[in-house]
Each structure stands twice: as C-alpha cells, then as structure tokens.
C-alpha cells in the first residue's frame, strides 16, 4: 500500500538527484520515509536519498518496493507547476503508479524491481576533512575545472586551513581556493583526491545553488557530498570513487 501527496518541487528535487546517475531505480516505500539508493553502471558514483514522511503533505506506506523508469516519472511530474501538489498512489493489482496533478491523471507502468541493478552497499568511510560550503561555490569550482580538464582535484591544505578545487589540463591549470572564512565550516585534515568531472558535473547539476553542501574528503578516498532538500526533511548523499593520482 502506498498513497502520498507531495509538492511537485520537492519531488522533482528528489528525483533529479537520482536521475543524474541512473535511468531506473528501486524506490523503497518505508513506513516513515521514502528512500532510494542507486549506483551508476560503472559502480563509480552512488546516491542515497531519503525523504521523510514529514516532507509530504500526506504519506501512507507499508514497506513495499517499486521499480521505476526515472525519466518517464520525471516527465509526468514535470507536467506540474512547482507549487502544485502531486498525488501518488500505487495500484497493487495492476502494479502501476497512478499520478494525479489537479485534473490530470496518468498511469506509470512499473518495472520489476528484480530486473534493476542491485542497490549498492554503502562504504563506511571515516574521512578526515569536512568542508561545508554553498552549492553555488561548489558550482563555481567545478565550472572552472571543466574549462581545462576532465578531472578535478579536491584538496584540503591542513597548514593553511583552505579548501582547493584544482584542475590540471594539458596546458592550462585552475585553482579555486576557499579559505576557512569563505566557507560555512571547515574541519581541517589531510585530504587530497582526484575525481572524474563527468560524474561530478552531473551531481552538481542536481545540487541546488543555495543548498548547504557538506563535503567529506580523504586521501585517495571517495568523496561524500550531502545536502538537505524538502526544507530539511529530506537528505541526499552522493559518494564518488576517486581516480588514482599518477605521480
């Protein structure tokens, strides 16, 4: 059983954060929240999303799992204005999701959850550095890096207490330095890892510019990016595996 009403903008923010990585996913309809966990086909980038029951206008669920094609679902939800409410209801018999937006009702055929790539185990990482910044700052660093390279180096300089978003191209370099006072918060530690911009750009697309993004970083370790959505009632965590830094 699943029946929920949610604002279109909340649902869209949530779905966007997953659809940048995968085309299909399982949605867990838990009693207290809705959650999605998915990893990209190359097993490099992962997303872990929860939307608390409190982020819905109304929410009833009993722990089922459904499989959806995200771009189709996003198309349907895209028919709503940001401030409109979307009503979702699972038809247990037909295994279809009924979606109602004002007078518009549509039916989305679901996918057998068993046919969807397995949900990843979440690496349990103890990362030494933690940077809290605005989505817009991260966006600026990533855009700058993208001008010169297809990879970006995220680094915390423990001595100068600064976070660097750096990139090195064949001929050109960029370095975006954010000191402790530029940041919302910084827990300094030795951290330096290289990441593919193909992934980071996609993740960045989903991160609202005004969101407070927490970046957890280590030495040649995956990076964790998390931010809250749905006015604090939802959480998105991205994890991205590093590329080995030659020399």
């Amino acid at each position: 059983m699943f029946k929920a009403i949610v604002s279109a903008s909340t649902l869209r923010d949530a779905l966007d954060s997953v659809s940048v990585l995968v085309e299909e996913c399982k949605i867990r309809l838990n009693e207290d929240d809705l959650s999605i966990r998915a990893v990209d086909p190359a097993n490099v980038g992962m997303v872990d999303l929860t939307l608390d029951a409190a982020s819905f206008e109304s929410y009833e669920a009993d722990g089922g799992v459904i499989g959806v094609n995200l771009s189709k679902l996003e198309d349907f939800v895209g028919m709503a204005n940001a401030d409109q409410l979307v009503e979702l209801e699972l038809d247990e018999e037909t295994r279809k999701l009924n979606i109602r937006i004002d007078g518009l009702s549509s039916t989305l055929a679901l996918i057998d959850p068993d046919s969807i790539r397995q949900e990843p185990d979440i690496p349990d990482l103890d990362l030494p550095a933690e940077i809290v910044l605005e989505g817009a700052q991260l966006d600026r660093g990533i855009k700058a890096a993208d001008m010169v390279s297809d990879h970006v180096r995220l680094r915390v300089d423990d001595a100068e207490e600064a976070f660097h978003i750096q990139a090195q191209g064949d001929t050109d370099d960029v370095d975006f330095q954010l000191d402790a006072e530029d940041l919302i918060d910084l827990t300094s530690g030795t951290a330096d890892s290289l990441f593919s911009l193909d992934y980071l750009k996609d993740m960045n697309k989903a991160i609202p510019k005004d969101a407070e993004v927490t970046v957890e970083l280590g030495e040649e370790f995956p990076v964790k990016l998390h931010y809250r959505i749905a006015e604090g009632q939802g959480n998105v965590t991205y994890m991205l595996a590093p590329r080995i830094q030659s020399d």
């Binding site: 490099v44 980038g45 994890m239 595996a241 590329r243 080995i244």
Partner: peptide, 13 residues
C-alpha cells in the same frame, strides 16, 4: 586502464 577506482573497493568488496 583502471585508474578510476570503483566504490566496491571501499565497501569491503
């Protein structure tokens, strides 16, 4: 190849 690491390597797999 193989410069890009996978997440599984960090999840105990």
């Amino acid at each position: 190849f193989g410069g890009q690491r996978g997440l599984a390597a960090f999840a105990g797999g």
